[in-house]
């Protein structure tokens, strides 16, 4: 694998690169490019882009071309594949896409709201049980989804809520990691004296949060929203357990069932491949657009001081 190769080459080459400035005592030439690190990163990038490049090319192949030509070269069937995919079961693919957008969009929005208000409360107020509440919520991160998902299914079945949009949305609204990030961002972004000033001006606690605290937390909240959006968009286990009606399936589950059927009809492979390509476009586009005014580093809870 290329990542392994990359590691080896770096290990051999790095001392050599390091020796150069040490032997020549003068100031090292400023403009020189660090060749080895750049190469290692490029190899990593190629490895990460390879399946994406493949799916872009494979989606342009007609069914016959897919099995007979090198799939890293463009084919001629993209328009047909797209039409076939749209025609498949009266456009159920676009229904899945819409469902994914609904689950991820609404779910992330609700989740961000809960994370914001909880994180703000944990950061701004000192109250009894604060650390206990925080630690217990955080422990939720460690709970394996399966120990949650199956009893969640059984409990929701008792409330007659399985196989519904709510059954996929509700269990994901509370994100322990979101609350954790919310607290970090609120601590960094909302100074205590600003809250105090709000109180002096006679504003209520909710008003201070909504009018003063919330706007200050926006960059952090965008991060929580993105994190949750990706988490829900990528989720498979929960909808797999909760849903049986394929009209309610998200993209991931829909493509999986399509592939499972493709096992008996390889003609469906072209649909799966085209569908996969279209499914990854929205998130890639989202990250490309958003990285202009938002930093990836925020995702790991980094806060500029």
């Amino acid at each position: 694998m290329s990542s392994l190769a990359a590691q080896n080459s770096a290990r051999e080459a790095a001392p050599a690169a390091g020796a150069a400035p040490g032997t020549t005592q003068g100031p090292p030439p400023r403009r020189r490019v660090a060749f080895v690190p750049t190469l290692v990163l490029l190899l990593g990038a190629v490895y990460c882009l390879l399946p994406v490049a493949w799916v872009v090319m494979a989606a342009t192949k007609s069914g016959k071309e897919l099995f007979s030509t090198l799939t890293l070269l463009p084919g001629t069937g993209f328009a047909d594949n797209l039409a076939d995919l749209t025609a498949y079961r009266d456009g159920i693919y676009w229904q899945w896409m819409g469902n994914s957008a609904l689950y991820a969009g609404l779910g992330a929005l609700l989740s961000t709201a809960v994370s914001a208000v909880s994180g703000y409360a944990l950061a701004v107020y000192r109250f009894r049980g604060r650390e206990t509440v925080f630690n217990i919520l955080l422990a939720g991160v460690l709970m394996p989804p399966v120990i949650l998902a199956i009893p969640q299914y059984l409990l929701l079945a008792k409330a007659d809520l399985t196989d519904s949009y709510a059954s996929v949305l509700l269990p994901l609204v509370l994100s322990p990691y979101g609350v954790y990030l919310g607290r970090i961002y609120a601590t960094a972004a909302v100074p205590a004296d600003v809250v105090e000033a709000g109180r002096m001006d006679g504003a209520g606690e909710w008003r201070i949060f909504a009018r003063i605290g919330l706007p200050m937390m926006v960059p952090g909240l965008v991060t929580i929203f993105l994190f949750q959006f990706v988490a829900i968009w990528n989720n498979f286990l929960l909808p797999y357990i909760m849903l049986s009606d394929d009209e309610k399936f998200p993209m991931t589950l829909g493509l999986f069932t399509l592939l499972a059927q493709g096992n008996s009809q390889p003609a469906l492979y072209t649909l799966v491949i085209t569908g996969s390509l279209l499914a990854i476009v929205p998130l890639i586009a989202l990250f490309l657009v958003i990285q202009r005014f938002w930093s990836l580093d925020l995702l790991s809870g980094a806060v500029k001081s």
Partner: peptide, 21 residues
């Protein structure tokens, strides 16, 4: 080191792709 914004984004890209896909 050069091309960092490109390589960083490219290596990060799979994060945005669901495990199923």
């Amino acid at each position: 080191v050069r091309l960092t914004s490109f390589t960083r984004l490219a290596i990060f890209l799979p994060y945005a792709i669901p495990g199923v896909i």
